[in-house]
Design a protein around this nucleic acid. Structure first.
Length: 424
RNA sequence: GUGGCCGUAGCUCAACGGUAGAGUCCCAGAUUGUGAUUCUGGUUGUUGUGGGUUCGAAUCCCAUCGGCCACCCCA
């Protein structure tokens, strides 16, 4: 036998037992998006590498070392598996002039790819859903997205997520703060660790959310970005906070909250849990008013978020809220002369009426068929033997209730079955 | 990319230098047309892979692949 083939590291099979939960989860997300007026968009998993380099930022970790990038050997194009979907969504919006007639609300879901070392809640192929409100400038959409998330957590029954909020202002405001921050960090350089020193010039904001207590202590009097925000930025932030207050959504302002991707401005937010170990961020987003221009579109304000499906499903499981998979309504056992054809047609009649009926396959003794019927979780076993075929009937046995089994007429099958289902 | 722990039956695990085992699951029978309990019997392995040490390796050593967790970073 050839060497065993296995899935690529960090890319997981979602097996049927678990996939049932995924389907239920996705259905809840779809329903939520629909209720808020967001329309689905499906973009390719593969894009030109340049899209992500320009959108996400050349000096981010994602672009520098985490992208699955390769050359298409057939035509020499540089391609990348999407590490996130906002860039693709905006690219599609520009390419198809989606905001020509005014702003649009969009949502997506699907796999993303980042070449990181796998650990709890972090995989090389992982799944996100997200929403993007394109063409809206005011704080109302920032708030709407956050309110929508809160509603979704409520539907899912997740209690252990908290909201952190910040405003990172405009590019100009960040630039002025950056100068002051670097000046401050240079005075503390002996207290900084290697990571902090490295980032001091490349991404000084990142130094502020270091997990190293020594670095935290040394930077506790660092210049705060919030103090550099002008009137317009502060008004926008106040608008968001006021709406969240009105909606009764609790949050804490974290002045050190920054986002990993370059395209954000003004509002940034994260939904965080303490229940998933080191990967506590379950959903994150913010405003990205500059992104359209950055990748060649007309200036268009926009705001969005992305949520990690694996992380949310893990939380959902912890909370014990994942619904049990649907069992079939009946398991159909057959044995003897003419029973197979008879059973097949009976099953088809029930399925046409909307019922989930599993017909036993692969032979086996009557006893083993009964065992399969039990294991299927179905409330009812339907039995077809030579007796039933001759009589034009089926035997109906309740598997989960102590009720006598009964014969039902084949020509009144659907009605008889419906009546029996009510007794389960 | 860095570090720690770990890879034995489909699953959960034992054996820690001397014959690879248990539970569970699965299959069959007890019960020839009636499941989930019980009893009886049965199948299941290149001990992740490749080298090395040894009379002898699941066990010790090295490499490699994979898993888990953390760092970095992120959803």
């Amino acid at each position: 036998m050839a060497a065993t083939l296995q899935a690529i590291r960090g890319m997981n099979d979602v097996l049927p037992d678990e996939a049932a939960g995924w389907l239920a989860f996705e259905e809840i997300v779809r329903d939520c998006m629909h209720r808020y007026g967001y329309r689905n968009i499906r973009t390719p998993l593969l894009e030109q590498t340049g899209l992500f380099r320009r959108a996400i930022g050349e000096v981010t970790d994602i672009v520098e070392k985490e992208m699955y990038t390769f050359t298409d050997e057939l035509n020499g194009e540089q391609l990348t598996l999407r590490p996130e979907a906002t860039a693709s969504t905006v690219r599609a919006a520009i390419e198809h002039s989606l905001t020509y007639n005014g702003p649009v609300r969009l949502w997506y879901a699907g796999p993303m790819y980042r070449h990181e070392r796998p650990q709890k809640g972090r995989y090389r192929q992982f799944h996100q859903f997200g929403a993007e409100a394109l063409g809206f400038a005011g704080p109302d959409l920032d708030a709407e997205l956050i309110v929508m998330c809160a509603a979704l957590w409520k539907t899912l029954g997740l209690g252990d997520v908290r909201l952190e909020l910040n405003s990172i202002g405009s590019q100009e405001e960040r630039a002025r703060h950056r100068v002051e921050l670097i000046r401050f960090l240079e005075t503390k350089v002996e207290a900084l660790d290697g990571d902090a020193k490295r980032r001091m010039h490349s991404n000084p904001l990142r130094v502020l959310d270091s997990k190293n207590p020594v670095v935290q202590e040394a930077t506790k009097d660092a210049p705060v970005l919030m103090d550099f925000l002008g009137e317009a930025s502060l008004a926008h932030f106040d608008g968001v906070k006021k709406l969240l207050g009105a909606a009764g959504i609790g949050f804490s302002v974290n002045p050190r909250l920054v986002r990993g991707l370059d395209y954000y401005n003004l509002t940034v937010f994260e939904w965080i849990t303490d229940k998933l170990g080191a990967q506590g961020t379950v959903c994150a987003g913010g405003r990205y008013d500059g992104l359209f221009e950055q990748i060649g579109g007309k200036p268009t304000p926009a705001v969005g978020f992305a949520a990690g499906i694996e992380r949310l499903i893990a939380l959902w499981q912890d909370a014990g809220r994942v619904p049990a998979p649907h069992a079939p309504q009946a398991y159909l056992i057959h044995q003897g002369e003419g029973a197979l054809e008879y059973a097949l047609l009976a099953a088809e009649a029930l399925r046409a009426a909307g019922h989930a009926v599993v017909q036993h396959g692969g032979g086996g003794s009557f006893k083993s068929q009964m065992k399969k019927a039990d294991a299927s979780g179905a409330p009812i076993a339907l039995i077809v033997g030579e007796d039933e075929v001759r009589a034009g009937e089926l035997t109906l046995k309740y598997l989960r209730r102590d009720r006598p089994q009964a014969r039902i007429r084949r020509d009144g099958l659907v009605a008889g079955f419906n009546a029996a289902l009510k007794e389960t």
